[in-house]
Amino acid sequence: MTVSLRGTREVRKNYQIFRLAGLLDAFSEPTFRKVIGNFIDEGPYHAILVLSQIDFIDSSGLGALVQLVKKAQTAGGSLQIVTNARVTQTVKLVRLEKFLSLQPSVEAAIENIEK
């Protein structure tokens, strides 16, 4: 059995950073959405998803990202997404780049939270 998505979590003062690698697809999406959603519920409510090591994202993964953005916003936080070219291209195909708050780096995402 292979694990298609791996990651780490780091909590800082008013935000948390998730660094993910692998595939964000229909197989990994239910666990991804549940785990990240639970951490957003626990707080801090601002979250940064670092997807620069994601090899593939499909419509299930995009749907989970949309749900997680809404969850963070409902809690009074935000979800910033640091991407790579492949993820950015997929997101732009469905015109979600503004809604998903794509960022070029973790530093840019942190700046966006601290505005």
Rank of each mutant, 00 (worst) to 15 (best):
Thr88Pro: 02
Ser60Cys: 06
Ile57His: 03
Gln16Asn: 03
Ala26Pro: 00
Ser78His: 00
Leu68Gln: 02
Glu10Trp: 05
Arg33Leu: 03
Leu96Met: 14
Ile81Lys: 08
Ser4Asn: 13
Phe18Cys: 07
Val87Trp: 03
Glu42Trp: 00
Ile54Gly: 04
Leu65Tyr: 04
Gln67Ile: 02
Pro30Trp: 12
Leu79Gly: 00
Val50Glu: 10
Arg33Gly: 07
Gly77Trp: 03
Phe39Lys: 14
Ser59Val: 10
Asp55Ser: 14
Lys92Asn: 13
Lys34Leu: 15
Ile48Glu: 00
Leu49Ala: 11
Ile17Pro: 04
Ala64Leu: 06
Ala72Trp: 06
Gly7Pro: 00
Gly77Met: 07
Ala75Lys: 15
Asp58Cys: 09
Val94Cys: 05
Gly63Asp: 00
Gly37His: 06
Thr31Val: 15
His46Glu: 05
Val87Ala: 01
Arg6Cys: 04
Arg95Phe: 11
Lys98Thr: 11
Leu20Asp: 09
Gly22Trp: 07
Gln53Asp: 15
Arg86Pro: 09
Val91Thr: 03
Thr88His: 08
Leu23Gln: 13
Asn38Cys: 01
Asp55Cys: 10
Arg19Asn: 04
Pro44Asn: 02
Gln67Gly: 07
Ser59Gln: 12
Lys13Asp: 13
Asp58Ile: 05
Arg12Gly: 08
Gln73His: 13
Gly37Ser: 14
Val91Cys: 00
Thr74Val: 11
Gln80Pro: 02
Gly63Phe: 01
Phe56Leu: 09
Ser4Asp: 07
Val35Met: 00
Phe99Cys: 09
Leu65Ile: 02
Ser59Pro: 07
Ser52His: 08
Phe27Val: 14
Val82Asn: 07
Thr74Ala: 12
Gly7Asn: 05
Gln80Glu: 06
Leu96Glu: 02
Thr83Phe: 11
Pro30Asn: 03
Ser4Leu: 12
Ala64Gly: 11
Gln67His: 09
Ser78Glu: 01
Asp55Met: 11
Gly63Val: 01
Ser28Leu: 04
Thr8Glu: 10
Glu29Asn: 12
Ala75Glu: 07
Arg19Phe: 02
Val11His: 08
Ile48Met: 01
Thr31Asn: 11
Pro30Asp: 00
Phe27Ile: 15
Lys13Glu: 10
Ala72Pro: 06
Ile17Tyr: 06
Val50Tyr: 04
Thr8Val: 12
Gln16Thr: 03
Lys34Glu: 15
Ala21Ile: 07
Lys71His: 14
Thr31Gly: 05
Val35Glu: 01
Glu42Leu: 13
Phe39Gln: 15
